[in-house]
Design a protein around this nucleic acid. Structure first.
Length: 102
DNA sequence: AACCTGACTTCGG
DNA sequence: TCCGAAGCCAGGT
């Protein structure tokens, strides 16, 4: 069928279980394009609300939140912490422990 | 149809 | 080790 890369990304994100996180690059790779991380960003912006996507479980490759303080950062950190994900003193997540790897 | 944009990623200095 | 610059993809205007 003719699913677009974006649609697959949307489904993948929707399938991220609570207490786990995924990186933009990882999602892009699972959707078929390891280099389309930027496209993943666009998907979150365009359909996170419409499709109930757990956008807060998506972080960058360094294991950190990409949002800036005052622009969603605190909210995201709060949501993740609430799901049991721990942050280092550097606001960094231990990927080898919380990364979603099905 | 062309240009712009985005919560990225990666390599080089 | 840290900062800057370039590369990449697809949807929107």
């Amino acid at each position: 069928m003719a699913e677009t890369f974006t649609e697959r990304v949307r489904n993948l994100i929707k399938n991220i279980p609570p207490g786990r996180v995924a990186t933009y690059g990882l999602i892009a790779a699972m959707a078929g394009n390891p280099r389309a991380a930027r496209q993943v960003v666009w998907v979150l912006h365009s359909s996170s609300e419409k499709y109930d996507l757990p956008w807060h479980r998506v972080i960058n490759s360094k294991g950190k939140i990409s949002l800036s303080p005052g622009d969603g950062f605190e909210l995201q950190k709060k949501l993740l912490t609430h799901e049991g994900i721990e942050f280092t003193g550097d606001n960094q997540v231990n990927l080898s422990k919380f990364l979603w790897n099905p």
